[in-house]
Amino acid sequence: MGQGFTEWEMPEAIEIRGLTKTFGAKVAVDQLDLTVPTGSLCGFIGPNGAGKTTTIRMIMSIIFPDSGELRVLGRASAVESKDRIGYLPEERGVYKKMKVGAFLTYIAKLKGVDSGAARRKTLAWIEKIELHKQLKDVHKKRCEELSKGMQQKVQFIAAVVHEPDLLILDEVFTGLDPVNRRLMRGLIEEQHKRGCTIVFSTHAMYEAEQLCQRVFMIHQGVKVLDDTLSGIRAKFDPRTIIVEPMDAEIGGGANAVATLGAMRSVRGIRHVEAVEDRQGAVAEYLLTMEERCSPREVIPEIARVAAVRRVELKKVSLDDVFIDLVTQGGDTSVKREDLRLAAEEAANV
């Protein structure tokens, strides 16, 4: 293993080639290629059961692939570089009966931090995220005495206390309230600034959009997306323009019909759809542009023909991309080959 990687000079944080893992008849990960550049902050998304956790476990050498090559922090497997990796698993917990301080010190020691430093770092972290303000003498409390949110923070400390070079966070935002989500985002960004490479898997597209430079998505064990956020936006150009009329137009009223007609007449518009609000008034129109037609020309034209309050080119959200990719071809029986082709096509647009 690892022979094929010698030609790369600058080691990437994670390099995966043709990674495959099956559980019985089920193919969890299929021929996955993935590169996480050193110092990047990557989002790893995909629907439930897509194979994210399996991939992460293989990166962590907790389970081993059936075939394929894998390099983590320049080593042939994570076994040799475990002390330099921080991992917050999706299935995470604490020793209920252990004291918070003892637990964190134990984990730090397991990651190769020596006793004294482990204790010092633990206390520094508790102070840093102000756990001691929520609960006095928190390091002397048993883990079971902590609230769920506090336990999550303790788990996060456990993942970063040894100052890793690579941080893998699996579903890190699950179960956090908005305040703690923001805190967590801050902590992740801080780790990134320190020079740590970060990969985090999530369902929360909002966080992914806020944080990531790069996004991978896998679906049914196959990579369907691997690009920077701006790249994704460019690729998944929605070709939809949102128009909000100046006055609320009661559905089917004379005004509405006129506006609709005016917008249809604009060159480059293929389809116009009226979206009504609860009262039956038209709240906005969704205009679909034809292929090879620039919004630069269409948008001024719309403003000219109709009285509008707002005209905007719909910005693609990761949510849309996600749903689009997952539901492509009917979500129940998507063939792997089709998925792969679709992904390649998307990449070539």
Binding site: M60, S61, I62, V79, K82, D83, I85, G86, Y87, P89, E90, E91, R92, G93, V94, Y95, K96, I107, L110, K111, Q155, A158, A159
Partner: peptide, 18 residues
């Protein structure tokens, strides 16, 4: 069983091999 049911197992496995 406790390490499994309290889900601390995978946290440990991030530091040590099974």
């Amino acid at each position: 069983i406790e390490e499994k049911s309290s889900r601390v197992m995978e946290v440990l496995l991030s530091a040590v091999s099974p």
